[in-house]
Amino acid sequence: MGLPAAVDAALGALVEQVIPCVVQVWNGRGGFGAGLIWRPGIVITSAHLLAPGAHRVILWTGEALPAEVVGVDAEIDLAVLRLPRPEGQAIPVREPGTLPVGSLVLALGHPWGDRYAASLGVFSGWVLARTRGPRGILRLLRTDAILAPGNSGGPLLDMGGRVVGISTMVVGGDQSLAVPADLAEALVQKVSR
């Protein structure tokens, strides 16, 4: 097997391994985005996807479950949902600070409503974003993987299948930003305490 074919096969295996962790989050108004099973029964997604009312999560298997919003942090655009039963497995997390610029990253989500699409790119570097919350300034991951509305809440993964960020701000054609995974981890810890 040639090198490009081997890379192809490896990417396929990687996607196959992590895709069951990705879910669809429906907000009860007909809109949906992506979410990630962080640990059994806990789903992390983007805060801007949520709407007042009931939320539903559709698993990779196609099963729909009601979801309860247990934590929202609008400043970092993340929300934590709880499923009625401990579904799925914990996803390994990589400290984003250890990711060198230029590393390959894989983004999963449902761009433009296209379910379970993958896009590949590199970690382009850090950007500073000003927020109106208590943090004031936020460091976000920038990637050149193409993201679109519907990717929000989906994971950004390194080549070892570890999550480094949650896709959040889909600015347009050439800019894709993700919230670092350590902030997501902190939020999950806070709400599960």
């Binding site: 890379v7 490896a10 295996a13 080549m159």
Partner: peptide, 21 residues
């Protein structure tokens, strides 16, 4: 093969980061 394939991706990613550095 799976583990070997995975290592290939990790190696590719690291080589890319090395080039950037």
């Amino acid at each position: 093969m799976d583990r070997e394939a995975r290592n290939l991706l990790v190696a590719l990613s690291e080589a890319m980061a090395e080039a950037v550095a």
